[in-house]
Amino acid sequence: MAHSPIRTARRSLLRAALALAAAFALPPALAQDNPPVRLIVGYAAGGPVDQGARLVAVALSRELGGPVLVENKPGANATLAGSEVVRARPDGLTLFFAASPTITISPNVMARMPFDPARDLAPVAPVLSYYNVLVANNDEPFRTTRELVAYAKANPGRLSYGSAGVGGSNHLGMLLFAKRSGIALNHIPYKGNAPAMTDLIGGQIDLMMDIISTAGTYIAAGKVRPIAVTSPQRNATLPEVPTLAESGIAGLEGFDVGGWYGIYGPKDLPAAKVESLNRAITAALAQPALAKRLKELGYDEWTGAPQKLAERAAKERALWSTVTQGIVVD
């Protein structure tokens, strides 16, 4: 029985995380030295955020001298997971592995945001950053950003794009691209990137932006056609794919829209605990096996002090506030 390319890719990502976990397995004695740390993820197992969390968790466990357990608590734009951390004891044993949309987009679009990330969470450490790639169904007549924009202007209302849901980063990234290039695109929201990718491959939609680490699988297999990456420079994983800024289209100069993962704790987490966790996370990300794997998946290194995470979050929250006017997610 044939498996869908989406399911096969998910299994490959999960196998990679498990393989790295085995490589970093703690000796039994070491694993008992410290109590387990819960790393809460707001998305289901097998997706890109869960993948990133599991890769980081196994490396971090070695730095902390005890297990780091990933717990999936999907729902409500990952705010269910964030709320659990907000309510947790500030002892450093419950942490939030957050994707940027929960911190920077959800406060702008959710009708009932259950917490204020800037007020109710303590930034602990940046983890990594990523960019999306704009991909098209293979049967579309355009191959470049310039050709896409020309086609969209000649056929207003013809092209549709999928996203992981209203207010998600790939929804707003496409919205910003369309706004700056002066075209009209129809948005088709899905419950996740995977079903959107399935329909893109099948021709039910024409375009979508997806994280390079997951879209690269389908590009390599010839399932979809890459148009451009959303980073200011070309990505080492897809070196032949130009940036949107390279198109030379007015409005796309300096286009730089990506995302990131960061680790947060409860707001009253003591400064000394934040500092020690930050050191451990930074050291974990420097471990050669993890650094190599993250690079292979198309992620960019992004480490530093908690303030670095806080400043980027504030900057991007302000950016998305200018794009999300009129968008409300119940």
Rank of each mutant, 00 (worst) to 15 (best):
A25T: 14
P90M: 07
V133Q: 11
L26W: 12
A23G: 13
G52L: 08
V85K: 01
A19M: 11
L13N: 05
P141C: 12
P48R: 13
P117K: 02
Y130G: 00
P107I: 06
L121H: 01
A76G: 00
A76C: 09
A29F: 11
P5Y: 10
E84D: 14
L134Q: 00
S83W: 01
A17L: 12
S129N: 14
D139V: 11
Q32W: 04
F96Q: 01
S106E: 05
A53F: 13
R54S: 05
M110Y: 11
Y43S: 09
G75I: 05
A136M: 08
R89G: 06
N72T: 14
R143M: 11
G92D: 04
T79M: 04
N34Q: 15
L20V: 04
N72E: 13
V37A: 03
F24V: 07
A45N: 07
Y43I: 11
L93T: 09
L93H: 11
P101N: 13
S106K: 04
A17H: 03
A98E: 01
R15E: 15
R10K: 14
L95S: 04
P67H: 07
I6M: 10
G65Q: 09
Q51I: 06
D91K: 14
L39M: 15
T8M: 13
A25L: 07
G75C: 10
N72P: 05
P48Q: 12
V124L: 03
T104K: 09
S100A: 14
A88E: 07
P67G: 11
P107S: 08
T94D: 07
A16Q: 15
V86A: 02
P35D: 07
P114S: 12
G52K: 06
V133Y: 10
A29H: 06
A81N: 03
A19T: 15
P126F: 11
V127C: 01
A136N: 03
P114M: 07
P114D: 07
S61N: 12
A98C: 01
A122I: 03
Y131E: 10
A136P: 12
L30W: 06
Y43M: 04
P35I: 13
L39I: 06
N34D: 13
A125N: 05
R89N: 06
F96D: 02
I40G: 02
V135E: 11
I6H: 01
F96K: 03
S106Q: 09
P90F: 09
R38Q: 15
A88H: 08
Y43G: 06
T102R: 00
A29Q: 15
P123K: 02
A17C: 05
M113G: 05
F24E: 04
A25S: 13
Y131S: 08
L39Y: 05
V41L: 12
F142A: 08
P126M: 05
G82D: 06
M110I: 09
